[in-house]
C-alpha cells in the first residue's frame, strides 16, 4: 500500500474490498477445459508424429528428439504466420505449455525486435522468454542429478 497515502487507510481498504467483489473474474472452468482440449490435441499430434517415426524404423526413445524438432518447427511456423497467438488465446496453457509454445516464446520476441537489428534485436531477444526456462530447468536438473549421483542411483 502506498506509504504516502496518509489517513486514508480505512477508505482504501473499503475500496479494495468493493473492487475485489465486483472485479470481473477469469472464466476458470472455461479456460481449464480449453487448456485440456488444446493441450491434449497437441500431445496427440506429437504422439502421431512419434508413431510415424517409429513406423519409419526409429525404435523406442530414438523417435523422441525428431518429434520435438518437428513440433518446434510447426510452432515456429504457426507463430510466423500469426496463428499461434490465436491458439493460445483460446487454449491458454494448452498452447503455452507444450514444446510448440516454447517455440512460440522464442520466435515471437525475435520477430518483434527485428527492427532493432540482427544482433541485439533478433539474436538477443530469442531468449528473453526461453532463457528462464533453460536456466531453471538446467539448475533443477543439475541438483536432481547431483542428488541421484550422490545416492548412487544416477
Amino acid at each position: 500500500m502506498g506509504a504516502e497515502v496518509r489517513g486514508q487507510a480505512p477508505r482504501i481498504q473499503r475500496y479494495h474490498a468493493y473492487a475485489d467483489r465486483i472485479r470481473p473474474k477469469p472464466a476458470v472452468i472455461h479456460n481449464v477445459w480449453w487448456a485440456f482440449v488444446v493441450g491434449g490435441m497437441i500431445a496427440l499430434l506429437g504422439q502421431g508424429i512419434t508413431w510415424g517415426f517409429q513406423q519409419a524404423g526409429l525404435t523406442g526413445n530414438r523417435a523422441a528428439t525428431p518429434t520435438s524438432i518437428v513440433l518446434v518447427g510447426l510452432g515456429a511456423l504457426f507463430t510466423g504466420l500469426g496463428w499461434y497467438d490465436r491458439i493460445v488465446e483460446l487454449g491458454g496453457m494448452g498452447g503455452t505449455l507444450p514444446i510448440t509454445g516454447f517455440a512460440n516464446a522464442m520466435v515471437a520476441p525475435a520477430m518483434e525486435y527485428r527492427a532493432e537489428g540482427l544482433i541485439m534485436g533478433v539474436g538477443a531477444k530469442l531468449f528473453t522468454l526461453a532463457g528462464p526456462v533453460l536456466v531453471y530447468g538446467m539448475a533443477t536438473a543439475f541438483v536432481m542429478g547431483a542428488i541421484r549421483y550422490g545416492l548412487g542411483i544416477g
Binding site: 520435438s68 524438432i69 515456429a76 514444446i99 516454447f102 517455440a103 533478433v122
Partner: peptide, 19 residues
C-alpha cells in the same frame, strides 16, 4: 535437439515473417 531446433527455426521465422 529441441533447443537447437527452436533456435534455428526461431531465427528463420524471425527473418522470414513480420508481426
Amino acid at each position: 535437439g529441441g533447443v537447437k531446433a527452436a533456435l534455428l527455426f526461431g531465427l528463420a521465422a524471425a527473418l522470414a515473417f513480420r508481426p
